[in-house]
Nucleic acid binder design. Sequence first.
DNA 1: GCCAACGTTGGC
DNA 2: GCCAACGTTGGC
Length: 159
Amino acid sequence: MTLKMHRNFWLMKSEPDVYSFAQLAKDHTTPWEGVRNYEARNHMMRAHINDGVLFYHSNAKPPGIVGLARVTRIAYPDPTQFNPASPYFDAKATLTNPRWFCVDVAYDRPLLHSISLDTLRSTPTLQSMVLLQRGRLSVQPITAAEWRTILQLGGITVP
DNA sequence: GCCAACGTTGGC
DNA sequence: GCCAACGTTGGC
């Protein structure tokens, strides 16, 4: 009888003007609402409780990874798709047939050193990061090796 | 604020 | 099912 620990890793982007890592520190946990891209959604639907999350600030100066979070609730229908007042409203979504899903993400810790996009680009072992291949995907998988490298770059010794 | 990259929509 | 038009993302 084996108990396999499934822990996957993700990078999630947010514009700090819209929702920052500092805000997550205050909120402790937040629904990762408003993802309206199928591939990003599909990644979230594969997330497990306790999966590691790299919190990435896009449209920031500089853009980069600023902290760690983790998944605390697996995918469920994103409530904003049903709300006509929300900017994320989707008229084609129904309660019985939702289109969009979100996960809950909890604050973990900041990186000691934020890692800019430039630094990621210039790190040889990170060249195959989805971020560097497919810039626009807002929820993307991170390999265990990339996770370790990034924590090391960020000055985190005990994950 | 610009604009390249690229995902989505909808007419056919 | 193609693909042109359109909208969005996100670095710069």
